[in-house]
């Protein structure tokens, strides 16, 4: 009972911290983007100011919308992304801390795959319920993106799980704990590393699509369909979507880090930081984790969104369903063949 309470308390604390960190990373993202575009950019805390302003703005519910879906969708989006964040980060933090708990084996990649879909589905529901042609077009596009992104993402997850089933002797291959404690790169030959690199590349392309950033922001495309899905949203509900977006970006980049770069400080250097009898390794690990998340965010989201134009929906679907699916299957095959070739 006490353990359960601790988990709940940790989850709530993590959620609050997650929202803050998510918004802060967004500020960093905007600053970096401004740097790449030779602008000054907004202050680092701009996402907080935006949120504050949206909260005091008038909230308009369109007359011809399906009101309860329209209101419910942003709440559902934030709730599901919060659960996603807890599911991804909490087991990993347990692992870094080296403690055990009931939550330790809870993080499951399959659950995470489903959790990832819920914010997108609530966006779609909210879009269709808006009763605006722009939002309808945006929702249709989001459906296409959702369906096409799932394929390479699932292949990446399967490839990682297969590797885990080999490394951990078949115990809990889908568990995030297994993934975190057996980094995918251990015991890999050059072919395996190449395969892992292809998987990283695939997931890099999936990140902007899952978080709805250029070049895969067709569902919101400002110049084409006037923010599409969000066209009719305003005030508090838009703020909720903003929060959900910040949390989802954080959760997904965290998932990226856990899947491919889960190494803690001790794993990397082999020793622990002990100052005046206190063990500060965990604190350093958390810092390292945040730095890794920011790096992944900057490379996979910021750098990509400043360097590319928005693709058309047909081009994006083709890219995910054909090119990136092929790429991830090739990565999987390379990882699969690696022990067999190296063993010869």
């Amino acid at each position: 009972m006490r353990e359960l309470l601790i988990v709940i308390a940790f989850s709530l604390g993590l959620l609050v911290l997650g929202i803050f960190l998510g918004l802060f990373i967004r500020g960093i993202d905007r600053k970096f983007a401004a740097y790449f575009q030779s602008r000054v950019g907004p202050p680092l805390l701009q996402p907080f100011y935006d949120l504050e302003k949206l909260m005091i703005k008038q909230t308009i519910i369109p007359e011809n919308s399906v009101s309860w879906i329209f209101r419910g969708a942003p709440v559902l989006a934030l709730a599901s992304t919060s659960v996603l964040l807890i599911y991804v980060v909490l087991p990993y933090l347990y692992y870094l801390h080296g403690s055990s708990g009931p939550f330790l084996t809870a993080g499951d990649l399959i659950v995470i795959l489903y959790l990832l879909m819920i914010p997108a589905i609530s966006l779609i529901a909210g879009g269709f319920a808006s009763g605006s042609p722009y939002a309808t077009v945006g929702a249709q596009r989001e459906v296409v993106i959702l369906m096409s992104v799932e394929v390479p993402l699932a292949i990446v997850v399967i490839a990682v799980a297969w590797k885990m089933s080999q490394a951990a002797g078949g115990a809990h291959p889908f568990s995030l704990l297994t993934v975190a404690s057996n980094p995918i790169w251990t015991g890999m030959g050059p072919m395996g590393i190449l395969g892992g690199g292809l998987l990283v590349l695939t997931l890099m392309a999936v990140v902007p699509a899952e978080t709805g950033k250029v070049p895969f922001d067709q569902a919101e495309a400002e110049t084409e369909i006037a923010e599409g899905l969000l066209a009719e949203y305003s005030g508090k509900y838009l703020a909720l979507y903003g929060l959900a977006d910040a949390v989802k970006s954080l959760a997904f980049t965290a998932l990226f880090v856990v899947l491919f770069f889960p190494h803690g400080f001790t794993d990397l250097t082999g020793f622990r930081i002990v100052i005046a009898g206190g063990d500060y390794t965990f604190a350093l690990d958390i810092l390292l984790f945040i730095v890794k998340v920011i790096i992944v965010y900057t490379v996979a989201i910021t750098a990509v969104r400043v360097a590319m134009a928005r693709l058309k929906i047909s081009q994006a679907a083709k890219l995910f369903l054909i090119t990136l699916s092929m790429l991830s299957i090739a990565g999987y095959l390379l990882i699969y063949l690696d022990p067999r070739i190296s063993g010869l």
């Binding site: 250029v214 070049p215 400043v306 360097a307 590319m308 134009a309 928005r310």
Partner: peptide, 8 residues
């Protein structure tokens, strides 16, 4: 076409 860096 959503290429804001080129625009700026």
């Amino acid at each position: 076409i959503g290429f804001d860096t080129l625009f700026l």
